[in-house]
């Protein structure tokens, strides 16, 4: 039988973990979104010599690397590599933010690409035919429409980020999953601490889901007004 009665006094431990998970997720979501857009624009960049486009090539390789290797490994690499290769002292929390940001930005770059490509080709042509530069057309015409395609998928990615943040526990970041493990050790209860953590994750992801669909609705309604 499950026994939650003895877990009362560990609630602060879970809340502390929850706080770290939220902090880690928010930092990562913001940074990964910004970086994701940058990576997309790098990938779409046409500058280069002849057929060779170094900026675009760099972004393509980056995306492949990030999507083709496990996140857990990336977190361990940043954590150990930061000290060994670069000689800088980064905390476990910072390592986790960097690794998950890099990883998620590759996925977000692809989400952004798909969202922009889904905008009718005629929109860019109409904007250009009116004398807008490519970047002005992007800002005034393409992005406002693409954002409606991008939002649902990016909301999913935010949920993934929350869940992925649990992997930061392997390098000792005191987030929810590590909190569960610590409580497990202290109480010799195998399941209950994990279940409590799971409930906290669910509350986080569910709330984020509601928030995202509210934002989506606000964006969608603007066409039909």
């Amino acid at each position: 039988m499950l026994d939650f009665s003895s877990l009362d006094r560990y609630i602060p431990k879970f809340l502390e973990g929850l706080k770290v998970t939220i902090g880690l997720s928010i930092a990562t979501v913001i940074l990964a979104t910004v970086l994701g857009f940058i990576i997309y624009f790098m990938k779409a960049s046409k500058s280069g010599i002849g057929k060779f486009r170094p900026i675009s090539a760099f972004a393509v390789v980056f995306i492949e690397l990030m999507r083709g290797t496990p996140l857990l490994l990336q977190i361990l690499l940043v954590f150990s590599g930061g000290k060994m290769l670069l000689g800088i002292d980064i905390s476990a929390f910072q390592s986790a933010v960097i690794a998950i940001t890099l990883n998620a930005s590759a996925f977000i770059a692809e989400i952004v690409r798909a969202g922009i490509e889904a905008v009718d080709k005629g929109q860019m042509e109409a904007a250009r035919s009116l004398g807008m530069s490519r970047s002005l057309a992007m800002r005034l015409v393409i992005m406002p429409q693409a954002i409606k395609n991008i939002l649902p998928a990016i909301g999913n990615e935010f949920v993934n980020i929350i869940k992925a943040s649990s992997m930061a526990s392997v390098i000792g970041v005191g987030e929810l999953t590590l909190a569960a493990k610590i409580v497990q050790g202290a109480t010799y209860l195998a399941l209950e601490p994990l279940i409590i953590s799971a409930v906290f994750y669910l509350i986080l992801t569910f709330s984020l889901g509601r928030l995202m669909s509210w934002i989506e609705r606000r964006f969608k309604s603007s066409d039909i007004r």
Binding site: D120, G122, R128, S129, G131, M132, P144
Partner: peptide
């Protein structure tokens, strides 16, 4: 871009900007 400002184009598929109302479609450029 300067040259295109002096040449208007109308497309078979209209290509109006769906996120802008009529007057903003006209005023945007």
């Amino acid at each position: 871009n300067k040259i295109r400002q002096r040449m208007g184009m109308v497309f078979q598929q209209f290509n109006l900007f769906p996120h802008n109302n009529v007057i903003n479609n006209i005023m945007l450029a």
